[in-house]
Design a binder for these strands. Structure first.
Lengths: 347, 347
DNA sequence: TTGGCAATCTGTAACGTTTCAGTGTATTGC
DNA sequence: GCAATACACTGAAACGTTACAGATTGCCAA
């Protein structure tokens, strides 16, 4: 029995993946020692430590994730929670790439946890927390009073939000300064002589809706321009809806001579609507829009753009969650990204 | 000792997550019985089975993934392998959503495994296979002779490719019929009287480059039109490169009067280049382009489009991998998506 | 010499799951 | 009446890891 066990356990011609036991056998040490040596524990002799680490590198040892996870509860997983129906396409891949960039040389894996519109946004988060499926969570579509953030804060699981909350609770976030964006946009339009401005808002209910609306309103009164209400659409509406309602708006005699748009996709529809109404961009009306890739200037060179970098957002969010997991103060893991200047076509 | 152990093990006022032991205690059965009852093993009495499943549902039992994975090696993970340096990969999010749609009511999680262009594309796949990090893998940017597919086939790990290979090996795939697309595009342009056509190709080296080029060439000779070589760009090039080289091309007197473009982002640049050269879309030249979202018609209504559905691709790929994991024949898990008709603006 | 202590190293148990090799019972066949 | 058999269930072991509680050694102070 002893013989057989040894034969099996100590198999060195291993096609199998090496484990601590393999390393223990090769070095002549116990698994405990090997385990500790690999994580630079202080009670292991310097030479032993080096030797173990050398052998481990040589044979390409990688800790078994299931073993670690079962024993310690650490999943080495970051989950990105996404709404599959709203999140505008291009953002998502940029955020994902930003996140993966940061976790690339960590043991972390990124899992994407989706939820659909019909679902309570809290569902996927509750699932993650209750099943212990991730060490950290990134959420977007953040609300001023966000139940998901509250929930995770209660349960003590590290997370970061894309966008800020306003609950008096402190947690990591990354946000684009939409207050500044809307303000800059208004000032730029006013500088061009535009006086009657409309705003294509973010989705109602999200925090950055408030920021954008406030930035817009404050700058309006600052420059003495007036607002043309355009509450019938937000960037969450379909292309067709935005296009149609923009056309309606632009056919009214009280139409705006300047429009600020919170998203590139919406801007395409807005411009289509403007042209449907027989007006000309740059002459009858100017449009300032956020964009996350360089395509709006290809679309119409008259467009004025402000760039928002979602890859950066992804990186910052990942850094924030990892920081929290690593024990940093949540309050020190907040970042706000300033908008670029309003950029005219520079072709 | 016995008392203490019991007190700990049988803790029923559990704030902790229920495990098989919890269920065993609550039902008065052994863990083995509970485990089998939950997976409908035949040697468990019908009533016991129902009872166990009822209790499990009541207390919201969910198997511990780490436990299962450690014991069985089953990860319940599908990995999507992505190249992070491919700009304007807006379809990535569509694929992700398609995949998540399918795995939503399975125990599977989706992990995104990135690699950068500088890396060997085989690296991430090798990592996944060697660490046993996933039960199934989805890859894209498939090549006719694809080392990744060959590797996974050798190692016996289920996968699906976005795009076909041409190695005489059979494996699941989903592909868009780019041969048909290019052919349709050429025939449509020819039908409009265009005789000198250029092609903005997919990246050289990928299988669908060949399909596209062949479809283009075959249809050209079929309709008796001629090709204007445009090998200096592919859709992998930057917006600026495509734009500049299109402008160069269009300034030559041997310029094409029709262009077929394999991607929406490239098309934006192509149109910009056409206009840089002082030509007018729809008059001097017509362009047929693939697109994955409805934005090209907003861009220029003269554009002719063919739709490619990436969400569908994601779903099909996920179904294929899951099918293979579930024991279906790889050869039965292949699908080809036919292009839509060439669509003019229907505004 | 002895006791104490620091420095290294080690075996065992446990995380939650499934599989293996059983253990009891009741029922059947003869 | 007894063995064979089907049925319903069970304990122990194992997957790979880490934490706990030692074990061994050498060295120094008393």
């Amino acid at each position: 029995m002893d013989r057989r066990a040894n034969e099996k356990d100590d198999d060195t011609s291993a096609k199998e993946r090496p484990t601590l036991k393999t390393l223990a056998f090769m070095t002549g040490l116990g698994v405990t020692t090997v385990s500790r040596a690999l994580k630079d524990a202080p009670e292991i002799g310097a030479e032993t430590r080096r030797r173990v680490q050398l052998v481990a590198k040589q044979i390409g040892y990688r800790p078994n994730r299931a073993g670690v996870r079962l024993r310690t509860g650490k999943t080495n997983v970051i989950s990105l929670v996404l709404n599959t129906e709203h999140e505008l396409m291009s953002f998502v891949s940029d955020i994902i790439y930003g996140v993966t960039e940061v976790i690339a040389d960590t043991p972390y894996h990124l899992i994407v946890t989706p939820y659909s519109r019909s679902q309570d946004p809290l569902d996927p988060v509750r699932y993650l927390v209750e099943t212990g499926s991730a060490d950290g969570v990134i959420i977007s579509r953040t609300q001023p009073n966000d139940p998901r953030a509250r929930f995770m804060l209660e349960r003590g699981i590290p997370f970061a939000t894309h966008g800020r909350t306003d609950m008096g609770l402190v947690h990591p976030y990354h946000d684009f300064d939409n207050y500044a964006f809307a303000g800059e946009a208004v000032r730029h339009l006013a500088g061009m002589g535009r006086r009657r401005l409309a705003l294509v808002t973010p989705p109602v209910g999200l925090t950055y809706y408030d920021h954008t609306v406030n930035g817009f309103a404050d700058a309006l009164s600052e420059v003495g321009a007036s607002e043309v209400p355009f509450n019938t659409v937000s960037i969450d509406h379909t292309i067709e809806q935005i296009r149609m309602r923009t056309a309606q708006l632009m056919r009214r005699e009280s139409r705006p001579d300047g429009i600020v748009s919170s998203a590139a996709a919406a801007t395409l529809a807005v411009v289509a609507g403007i042209e449907d109404a027989g007006l000309k961009l740059g002459r009858d009306v100017d449009v300032v829009s956020k964009q996350s890739s360089e395509l709006l200037h290809l679309f119409r060179r008259e467009l004025l753009v402000v760039n928002e970098n979602f890859r950066l957002a992804g990186s910052e969010l990942a850094r924030a969650v990892l920081g929290w997991i690593g024990g940093k103060e949540p309050g020190s893991l907040q970042s706000l990204s300033k908008p670029s200047e309003v950029l005219p076509y520079r072709g």
